[in-house]
Design a binder for these strands. Structure first.
Lengths: 228, 228
DNA sequence: CGCGGCGTTGATTCGTATCAACGCATGTGG
DNA sequence: CCACATGCGTTGATACGAATCAACGCCGCG
């Protein structure tokens, strides 16, 4: 797909990097990559030479612990930029994995890092992305530190729904949701078994329904109350 | 105290903002403020007109929940900058409270926001600060999501010790630690009672000792193992 | 058709919360 | 200088939420 027709351009970093010059953006794009599900994109500590704008599909950023368990730090959605830390030298903080087939638009890390601070509009856009990332993480800390299982799930689902809505990928209260119970568990500090029980309860209370890789919010106010 | 003699200058944002011109830094500093313990510095959502470099004392960034419980997002230590989000318009993400008497060096938010992006060295330094903040939060998410009480305490104490050491405020394995059990509990998703039990266990295992506002790491390897 | 991955459900265990009582230090006013 | 109040840490008994372990069912797929 050409950048000119990309529906995600306006809601992603591409917008800032090429408001005036679409041809320049198109030319900077090295390639589009398509990865199957369950493929490692990068590993913690690496410094790949490309950065990406996610074009489609879902992924996950996570850390492995010594005891073999996995903590998911965030989900990667279409429109996301991978990754901010590569714009100023740092190796990446966390490993990444695709959950579904994922399409990426690749750019040169080096060039992006140079261009990123070329004008103040871009600098502010990047600072804004950092701010969002921090905000998301802080919400996650609150969920993990102070909320019971149902509240954690409600909070996560509402966050994802808000993201997808902003990027035009949710039709009202229904939206794609390819996460398995195990993914939810690893993101929320729970076990798959308990996620199953909690989702069953949420469904019976007519708050939230997750079926065949789609989620439907049945009672937004109810969920918001749970996620306080 | 004059900026020229400030022992924290080299390990804080002041270094980047005035490597060449100490007089300029000194002049930019609006005032030094001293706040007693348990005083609110700012509340979530506000946009104060000053930013600060913490000169001394400890504080806390936190969010209150509807049910009255508190989640601490991070501790504020001498040398910290308050706050990054004020450098590009955002209102602050979380309320802040002093834990001890705190001394702050105040600067104009407006001027700092203008100067922040004036040269690429500063831009990179700020991006680096964002990166650290994200890194800290990600470690917190791992602690809260996947570790038992002893591991959480170990992880937090080691992080704080590393920070203080970097800033020259820890003498080997002993360092100031003015946190009450309730503060630890609110940061780590535990209750004060359970923090007490866990600290007792850590003391009996000769791993960590916390007494009269000071902490001593008795067995660093043991703690690191607990914190995985 | 059989197999593997995933979700569900039940029985049990475990970690932490909750609630309450108590001790100790510190501060304060009589 | 003592009597008392306050705040914080400690300890114990009990409750509860979630983990663990295991069995089973469903479904998609080779």
């Amino acid at each position: 797909m050409q950048c000119a027709e990309c529906p995600l351009r306006s809601s992603s970093i591409c917008h800032v990097f090429s408001r005036d010059d679409l041809a320049e953006l198109q030319e900077a794009r090295l390639r589009q990559v398509s990865l199957p599900a369950k493929r490692v994109i990068v590993r913690e500590g690496e410094t790949p030479s490309e950065v990406y704008r996610v074009q489609g599909g879902w992924g996950v950023r996570f850390k492995m612990l010594a005891n073999g368990s996995r903590q998911i730090l965030s989900f990667v959605l279409p429109g996301d930029f991978l990754t901010l830390e590569l714009l100023h030298d740092g190796p990446i903080h966390a490993s990444m994995l695709t959950l579904t087939r994922v399409t990426l638009c690749a750019f040169s890390r080096e060039q992006a890092a140079r261009d990123a601070y070329a004008d103040s509009k871009r600098v502010h856009a990047i600072a804004h992305l950092w701010g969002q990332r921090v905000c998301d993480l802080e919400r996650t800390v609150v969920l993990l530190g102070r909320m019971p299982a149902a509240g954690r799930i409600a909070g996560l689902v509402l966050d994802i729904h808000a993201q997808l809505t902003r990027r035009g990928m949710a039709a009202g209260n229904e939206f794609p949701f390819p996460l398995r119970h195990e993914d939810l568990a690893d993101a929320l500090g729970l076990t798959p078994a308990h996620v199953s029980r909690t989702l069953t309860a949420l469904r019976q209370d007519r708050l939230l329904e997750i079926r065949s890789a789609r989620a439907t919010i049945l009672d937004r106010d109810g969920l918001r109350k749970l996620a306080t």
